[in-house]
Write a protein that binds this DNA or RNA. Structure first.
Lengths: 240, 240
DNA sequence: CGGCGGGTCTCTGTATACAAACAACGGACG
DNA sequence: CGTCCGTTGTTTGTATACAGAGACCCGCCG
């Protein structure tokens, strides 16, 4: 049987594998968001409606919607009378972000330990056991490793079954991905992180909520320490 | 010295004390948000752009912006092809909201205990000591009591000095105010809450972060219990 | 030489017109 | 009598035109 020829414009993917939205607002939002997170639009960049609309290739109306969403995300901030600015990323902000992240991820780990399906996490455990080998495979392996971490986070989110918490975590992760570039590819840290993740997974499998929360706390403490150390070396990070 | 006379149109207040925004988007957002939180637009209500634009008295463009913000707040949800709907409030959602709230408020209390100015909280302590008397003064006293709680929350936010955390807490409180109506005015509960708040304040004054966090945990546990008990009696709350 | 004020010019905020997509309805055909 | 398809109406998505507010700049005055 031949599949019917239907144009699913909403899920059509471009050559780069990035889902291409049908409507202009979504396209503009994704493009600007990606450019901010990738650093193509560095902090402090002023965004003017007409200018950005022309660049992205949409009219001002959908672009305004996109900027409004970015503003709600906290990626840009309104500047009275003179458009919007890409928000700054300072060391102080990183510390603050981690304070929120700790609260959220500890709770998520707790809930996952209480409600999670152990089978799911046993599967993840097996893959984290061999994760250190990925680090020997260069840039591609590192990407796979980060994908694995994403899967763990998503498994914890699913197990927690709390839409409010997931929403808050998504917001935090958006900001995190902006600073993750700084510490990316530190293999010694990634190897240590794998061990920390394993402990979290074991705690969830065992249904030990307190251990899961405390292991998450330890993991994030180490993560923050590593990020701060990386930013100390990297002069690109400005501490306003 | 006389303060300069400046027209702050953005903060100008109307006769009812409600800040009146200069621009139509803000006005539409405030009105719709207020109506949703007050229950004037009950869960399940469909919002059509033209209809709401006419009712609020703005054109479709600012109204779309308002609805986009409400959607980001989680107060309305997009319905493919047929406008937006006011989101439901179920008992399950209340539980989930409290799970997030606990994580956030515990962290906020912790930070306040570490960084807060004891003098500020000593002032609040004095006022909470006499708070039970307010409950004897009818509806007006109860409103003053809630205002006092708001002040405490704001003092904790300020002491925590973490914009990300405050932002997340604001989002939670938005949803909370939708359900607070259900349990409003339960005097026995309010009296008990005053004692719990006092313990939190004392912990912050003493700089005891763990006690502040645990006292907050206890307080929220009692609060949730009280809310759930109230919804059991109140058939208006649907559990989908 | 510095501060103040008027003018201009750019940019945002709002309204409206147009296009496209989705849903619902009705009719015709199997 | 049921199902499929075409048509119509309603609703959102986008573009653009217009108006108002704010900033910048230049010239004037102290």
């Amino acid at each position: 049987m031949r599949a019917p020829i239907v144009a699913f414009v909403y899920t059509k993917t471009d050559p780069h594998g990035v889902p291409e939205a049908a409507n202009a607002s979504e396209r503009a939002y994704r493009q600007l968001r990606g450019e901010i997170l990738d650093g193509d639009l560095p902090p402090g960049t002023g965004l003017l409606e007409v200018e950005q609309a022309a660049r992205v290739g949409v009219s001002r109306t959908p672009l305004r919607a996109a900027i409004a969403r970015l503003s709600a995300d906290g990626l840009v901030a309104g500047r009275t009378g003179r458009g919007f600015v890409v928000t700054e990323v300072s060391i102080e902000r990183i510390r603050e972000l981690y304070e929120l992240r700790q609260a959220l991820e500890e709770q998520a780990a707790r809930l996952a330990a209480q409600r999670g399906d152990p089978e799911v996490f046993r599967g993840l455990r097996d893959r984290f056991l061999v994760a250190p080998e990925l680090l020997l495979q260069g840039e591609h392996g590192i990407r796979l490793y980060y994908d694995l971490i994403d899967e763990l986070e998503q498994a914890i989110d699913t197990a927690g079954a709390n839409p409010y918490l997931v929403r808050a975590l998504d917001a935090v992760r958006t900001h995190l991905s902006r600073i993750r570039r700084l510490a990316r590819g530190n293999k010694a840290r990634l190897r240590a992180a794998a061990a920390e993740h394993l402990l979290i997974i074991d705690a969830i499998i065992a249904g030990d909520a307190n251990l899961a929360a405390h292991a998450t706390h330890v993991h994030l403490h180490q993560s923050l320490t590593s990020v701060l150390a990386a930013t100390d070396e990297d002069p690109a990070t400005r501490a306003d």
